[in-house]
């Protein structure tokens, strides 16, 4: 379904975020992407829909080569790829409904979207999705009036409103408490199962990944160092991904305080994040 071939990314600052990453995602497969901060997890999933422009390598969505697309072609491809963000990334001053409908922007012309005249099917679908994520009572609330968990549900509904073929999910639970984190993860996995939707989930909480995901990829300093089932994650593998630490408590045990398992940052991660921010802004121009 999704295939990465020799993907590399070097930021303008000279930071190597990804080196020769190759992997493929089968239809309906949900992948957990783990690794320390600065390992290139965010960069990897942003390369897939080219929010970050890869330096070299190829990305295929089905038969479509995303890396070779023109601007217009890329817009069409992005419609097929839903994305869910760490800090929800809702447009805070728009209503919940507008946020969900914004998932449809790739399909409607400017003036229709400007006057909020979306096709009836899109609106019906938005209501259905909001019901599915349990927010039918909040349709006309402004996004900034919702709690963290509710906002992330809107984020999920927005991604699904695109009717995507693939979901990219960037640290969906990083800003949430442990209980809400589990609810959100469960919801995501359930929805992916219902629709047979493949997904890549960036996640820093190893235990959470093990609990919900059937295939885990470990990223370290921009390289894939592990690719296997959650059962294969042992102390040796975690050491390979995160570095030396006592892993006995982490493996196969949900850490109830929800603290990051790998918050010992690699050096240079700050620059990565800053470089990433700059590229994000580049999308505006």
């Amino acid at each position: 379904m999704l295939r990465l071939e020799g993907l590399s990314k070097v930021y303008g600052t000279g930071d190597r975020a990804l080196t020769d990453v190759s992997l493929s995602v089968e239809p309906g497969q949900v992948i957990g992407l783990i690794g320390p901060s600065g390992a290139g997890k965010s960069t990897l999933i942003r390369c897939v829909n080219r929010l970050v422009e890869p330096t070299s390598g190829k990305i295929f969505l089905g038969d479509l080569e995303i890396t070779g697309l023109s601007r217009g072609g890329l817009r069409q491809a992005r419609r097929r790829i839903g994305m869910i963000f760490q800090e929800y990334a809702l447009v805070e001053r728009l209503t919940v409904m507008e946020n969900v409908l914004s998932g449809r922007l790739g399909y409607v012309g400017f003036w229709r979207s400007f006057f909020r005249k979306f096709p009836p099917e899109a609106i019906e679908n938005a209501y259905r999705l909001l019901d599915r994520v349990g927010l039918s009572a909040h349709v006309n609330k402004r996004a900034d009036a919702l709690s963290g968990g509710q906002r992330q549900r809107v984020g999920i509904a927005r991604a699904l409103e695109q009717d995507p073929d693939l979901l990219l999910i960037d640290e969906p639970t990083a800003s949430l408490d442990p209980k809400t984190s589990r609810q959100i993860m469960r919801l995501i996995v359930e929805i992916c199962d219902e629709r047979g939707l493949p997904a890549i989930i960036n996640i820093h909480d190893v235990a959470l990944a093990q609990q919900f995901v059937r295939r885990i990829i470990g990223l370290q300093a921009g390289k894939v160092v592990f690719d296997g089932s959650p059962d294969e994650l042992d102390a040796d593998v975690l050491t390979k991904i995160y570095g030396e630490e006592d892993w006995s408590a982490t493996i196969r045990k949900v850490d109830e305080d929800g603290e990051e398992a790998g918050d010992d940052d690699d050096e240079g991660s700050e620059e990565h994040i800053a470089a990433l921010d700059r590229e994000r802004l580049a999308g505006l121009t």
Binding site: N49, L51, R75, Q76, A77, R78, R79, I81, G82, M83, F85, E87, A89, L90, V91, E92, L94, E98, S102, G103, R104, L105, G106, Y107, F110, S113, F114, G155, R158, Q162, L168, D277, R280, L281, G283, L284
Partner: peptide, 23 residues
Amino acid sequence: DAVQVEAVSATGASKAQIMDYAV
């Protein structure tokens, strides 16, 4: 907030739509 802009552009919105919905 650049992330909100990023989120709207990730849906395949055009430049004008990004202006209208995110900026």
